[in-house]
Amino acid sequence: DELEKRVKKIARKLNLSLDQVEEWLKRNNNDELVEAVKRLKKK
């Protein structure tokens, strides 16, 4: 979905793993995208 695409884009842009992106999003209080990261990690 759109949020998952955004997460992947962030990960690529910042050259981070999904775990690192998740931490980064949590620090930025971006719950919506944190949920998207969790969905991606399950895939």
Rank of each mutant, 00 (worst) to 15 (best):
K41L: 12
A36M: 04
D31L: 14
A36T: 05
V21K: 00
K42M: 10
E2S: 11
E23W: 10
K5S: 12
K13I: 14
K8L: 15
A36P: 00
L14S: 02
L3N: 09
E23I: 10
L16H: 01
L14Y: 15
L25D: 00
V34E: 07
L25Q: 00
A36V: 10
I10E: 01
A11P: 02
W24H: 04
K43V: 06
E35H: 06
V34A: 09
V21H: 00
R6V: 15
K41Y: 05
K8M: 15
L33D: 01
K42H: 10
N28V: 12
L14A: 02
E35K: 08
V34Y: 10
E23T: 07
R6W: 15
V21L: 15
L18P: 04
K9R: 14
W24L: 11
A36H: 02
R12N: 12
N29S: 11
K43F: 10
A36Y: 04
K9Y: 15
D19F: 05
V37N: 01
V7Q: 00
A11E: 00
L33P: 01
K13G: 05
R12H: 13
L3H: 07
K41C: 06
L14P: 00
E35L: 08
K41I: 10
V7H: 01
D31I: 14
L25M: 05
K41Q: 09
L25K: 01
K26P: 00
R27M: 13
K26A: 11
K8Y: 15
K9N: 14
E22V: 07
L16P: 00
K41H: 04
K13R: 13
L3F: 10
R39G: 06
V37K: 01
I10S: 00
K26I: 11
S17M: 05
K38C: 10
W24G: 00
A36L: 07
E23K: 09
V37E: 01
N15L: 05
S17D: 10
R27H: 11
L40G: 01
L25C: 14
K41T: 03
L33N: 01
V7L: 08
R39D: 03
K8A: 14
V7M: 05
Q20P: 01
K43I: 07
V21G: 00
E32M: 09
E32N: 07
L40T: 01
D19E: 08
R6G: 02
E32W: 10
L18W: 10
A36R: 02
K38E: 06
K41D: 02
K42I: 09
L18D: 01
N28T: 13
E22R: 05
R12Y: 13
V34S: 06
Q20H: 04
Q20C: 09
R6K: 12
D1E: 12
K41E: 05
K26T: 10
E2D: 11
R39F: 03
K43W: 12
N30S: 09
R12D: 12
V7P: 00
L14Q: 03
N15G: 15
K13N: 09
L16Y: 09
E22N: 02
A11M: 15
D31P: 13
